[in-house]
Design a protein around this nucleic acid. Structure first.
Lengths: 250, 250
DNA sequence: CCTCAAAATTCGGTAGGACCAATTTTGAAG
DNA sequence: CTTCAAAATTGGTCCTACCGAATTTTGAGG
């Protein structure tokens, strides 16, 4: 007994409704799904609040453009309780990322097509160029890793990694003001990113996996050092200004 | 002008409603907010989907106590439509399982405590004992693998694997009638399960990882063979009765 | 024919009533 | 005071009706 929202999402999937396309009128859709318009509307409201559907009064209901940053911003709102939880989950998340993203790099090296390679190089350039805004830099990092995940041509893998990024962003925005920027980190990260892309573009799957593993191990240890420093600073009671910047999701 | 959902949240704040406390009945609340119950309910549905409110049929609406589990569940929500999509994604899912579950076995070997070991041996016994009902056997298999995931003491990992099982269950029930039971499969699976548990209980992390990898590779190849057979049977146009049974989630 | 504004239709937004099923409360019997 | 069935409460669903915005159709004027 799938929920009505799931039924609607299934309807969208089965009818190949691309973002921007219109759903059937509520009265008709309610009829085809065998429910009343009241109930259908309650379900649609949920999908609207999730950013899956946008509604235009008098016009119709449409599949939302998933590209909007707003959708992402909204996706991480309900995760706030997790961010406030003791310690956070980033240790757990990093462990999983090491599993999933190394495999993503591996499969990307095996399966990437020309489109994927083009997107990958573009994303790499964007993340290396850097951005003044830390949030923008984080987005660029996430986009880079998502490009790898999508190049793996494993939809479920891409979805899971995307979900993990949503979780990570929370802890980032939460502790952004408390993090230190480590010296030489940016250069090291760019170098690691480059190595991953090189291996993928060359189709060297095992190299890609190893490069991704090295990268994530480095990120994890850096984050751990940052956390330790923060803890030490808290213990010392010292409150000096911190210049936290990009590199959180590298 | 604030949205109705905001008005409701304001109402909760102004009336000092702590998590677990009850909101006024919908009819009364709609009256005090000056809207119809239809509209109020649509707003409440949004708050429910955000995890801010929980509803008990016949009981009332209550302020939810925001838990981390809910946040995780919502982060992985976009996976649901994939499960019901045409063709199924079990290839993709198996790839991810190979990533995640090998790591789960690895970490379980490192971190399992006495409770975990006890649950693990019990789950192993249950899955080896077998069950007449295929659905029950699938549940036992899933429980076994979840026990490993929980023993890894990585909450996010356990949650993701649990979500993947939900996905798999759907594709199983979808194609249950079309699958063949392969000879000698059950014995092989039990043997593999035993090897995994042995390694975990002994704390041999790398062995556990390898055993899990072997197991999942075997499962994937078996499933692939089943799929190929089914395709061949379809091509031949032969419609003989198929005895699909357990072993789908082993 | 074409243009374009008015009219008709479509469609989401809201209101209100009715009934069902699960829960909670009530109150009479023991 | 306890027990337990009846009654009131409450969320879940369906229905009908109407409004206003957006879209489509119409048809008069060029």
């Amino acid at each position: 007994m799938p929920s009505l929202t799931d039924q609607i999402e299934t309807f969208i999937a089965q009818h190949q409704l691309a973002p921007g396309e219109r759903l059937p009128p509520e009265r008709a859709l309610a009829s085809t799904l065998g429910v009343s318009r009241s109930r259908l509307r309650e379900a649609i409201q949920q999908l609207i609040s999730r950013g899956i559907i946008v509604s235009r009064r008098g016009g119709g209901n449409f599949v939302a453009d998933g590209s909007a940053d707003l959708a992402l911003e909204q996706a991480l709102r309900p995760l706030q309780p997790l961010a406030q939880a003791e310690g956070g989950y980033w240790h757990d998340i990093m462990e999983i990322r090491k599993s999933l993203e190394t495999d993503a790099a591996y499969y990307a090296a095996l399966r990437a097509n020309d489109d994927d390679r083009q997107r990958l190089t573009k994303a790499l350039a964007a993340v290396c160029a850097g951005a003044a805004d830390p949030a923008a830099q984080s987005r660029a990092d996430a986009a880079f890793h998502m490009a790898i995940a999508e190049a793996s041509h494993n939809l479920v893998l891409a979805q899971v990694i995307s979900g993990l990024f949503d979780l990570l962003k929370i802890s980032i925005t939460e502790s952004l003001g408390k993090l230190h920027k480590l010296p030489d980190t940016v250069d090291a990260l760019n170098d690691q990113h480059q190595k991953i892309v090189d291996a993928i573009l060359a189709g060297r799957a095992e190299d890609a996996r190893r490069a991704a593993a090295d990268h994530l191990t480095f990120v994890e240890s850096s984050l751990r050092r940052i956390e330790d420093d923060a803890a030490r600073a808290r213990r010392a009671g010292a409150l000096r200004s911190t210049h936290s910047q990009e590199g959180i999701l590298p």
